[in-house]
Design a protein around this nucleic acid. Sequence first.
DNA 1: GGCGTCATGTAATACGTTACATGATTAC
DNA 2: GTAATCATGTAACGTATTACATGACGCC
Lengths: 192, 192
Amino acid sequence: MGPIPKALEENEMKLRPTSHLILGMVRLGARSGYAIKKATDVSTRFFWPMSLAQVYPELARLVEAGLLSRDDDSHGSRRRFAYELTAAGEEALQRWLTSSREEETLFRDEGVLRLFFADNLSVDDQLALVRRLHERAKRDLDHTRTEIVPLAAALRDNGIRFPERVAQLRAENYERAERWLGALEAELNQQA
Amino acid sequence: MGPIPKALEENEMKLRPTSHLILGMVRLGARSGYAIKKATDVSTRFFWPMSLAQVYPELARLVEAGLLSRDDDSHGSRRRFAYELTAAGEEALQRWLTSSREEETLFRDEGVLRLFFADNLSVDDQLALVRRLHERAKRDLDHTRTEIVPLAAALRDNGIRFPERVAQLRAENYERAERWLGALEAELNQQA
DNA sequence: GGCGTCATGTAATACGTTACATGATTAC
DNA sequence: GTAATCATGTAACGTATTACATGACGCC
């Protein structure tokens, strides 16, 4: 048994959702920082976005805390590191998944904010706003159906089911939003 | 005509959604910083949260930019300021509402993130997680129906309709989420 | 007299983004 | 050969949160 890492010993390491996201992605098989980022871009980014500039410092912290191991995985002169969960890392991921702490949530949507204040607009301008939001919803729905759901569905064949469920929830939400905006558009069209 | 405020003249003033939120709330009749914050807490906070510590500096910036006027509105020895939109402020609000710029959006939900990684859990733990999320959705739905929708509906009598529509959209979203989680809970219950 | 609310602000801190910086490999 | 992608990182900046600080008014 080597010495216990300082950060863990002193309980300094505060794990945020982003930390757990990285642990989870390593668990799903993403080995490099770059691969982790790519994986989130087609899956979790819709409910927990993360930039590349967050990944590398966070990986360093998780290694320092003893939750991840880091090995050199360079191909010739091309640098790369491969990360894997340690036993402590597995445990931390599990603790997070089973903890009953209230979840952080944050929703920001400038489009809905505009809609909230749309009484200030003429019916024509209201219509223009709603049309744009409707178009956006259609694009997002289409993207989710054609790009996101199939990728998640492919995981199912490896026995990983929840990503597909989550992707379908997202698709259903967009369907509903799209229909709601369509109805509002039709209503305003009658007024105009 | 007095001198043009420096910030406006040099085009230094960058208006964020939060700035427009404040302009919009003043437009709806909130006169003090405190009143603006209270109003957002029962309406826009679900899609554009704002803390008190943001309100006061932002109000100062908007006054400096000439978009809001600020008058002393103290009652006896109790300090208070009353804000109102200037012509430039009205115009800025209108420009924002009609602009076709892509809207900022950000969704974070640690609960969904956990769900995404729930394949790591035993069926019992999956069930516990889904139950907690289901309970949360029920609470949120109930709160929206009993507290938020009625307040927004009251505005309708003053000819302000969009807040109610937005509140109803929110209620529908929670209904759907609640039902979806209920179905998932039932499915997992059969597996357990 | 004390608690909740009204009311205004500042300071410290946390967190995230974009831009910067570098370089190898692969596909066209 | 050149553009896209793989790959790792740092620096500067923007924005939001929590905690701090202060005080008046109204209700029980």
